[in-house]
Amino acid sequence: MLETLLPNVNWEKMIEATNETLYMTAISVVITFVLGLILGLLLFLTAKGNIWENAIVNKVISSVVNVFRSIPFIILIVLLIPFTKLILDTMIGENAALPALIIGAAPFYARMVEIGLREIDKGVIEAAKSMGAKTSTIIFKVLIPESLPALVSGITVTAIALVSYTAMAGVIGAGGLGNLAYLEGFQRSRSDVTFVATVIILIIVFIIQFIGDSITSKLDKR
């Protein structure tokens, strides 16, 4: 049945491409989470009236974040070709997409982290201080737990954006479903291949959204 409806789909290739997309998304989500969290915390802590108040550091991080957040992803990939070549020695394959994916997504996530942290009641931070808490205690036992629902819903949104970034990266030469849809589907006019690749991407997005939403609502005790 499937053969007649989708005559050009090579399922082995499709599965391989799905695995590549999942691999690129997973690695970039993990690194983006860590990097974005660090940047977001720095943005928050160095802001006016905060523990590490420092106008210069804040301004520098803020500008870098804004610049990278504003560059369209497809241009970012091209801009990053020399950098990627330097560290990975290749422009082809899943790993080649990672630097661009992370550099594109981490500033985006950092802003979401910052917003989440700003929503924490100032009084709670002050209460922790009044108990004699160190800055590290405040970060790990107050800031992160109290903003966790926002951090999780932020990484959900970022992960979904990363799935579509992987598809764009595929067009440039990284693997994955985007690459397959472009080379096998679009360039050879096999629309059934494009169709199946799209459906799989949608399924991935729905699954990420579902997992993110259920974790967020489970965490939120407010």
């Binding site: 709670v124 737990p145 109290e146």
Partner: peptide, 17 residues
């Protein structure tokens, strides 16, 4: 020193998590 000087607040300031 702060461990010997506790404080309570108008809006309680508990950790909701």
């Amino acid at each position: 020193a702060r461990q010997e000087i506790s404080m309570i607040f108008q809006h309680f300031n508990l950790l909701w998590s």
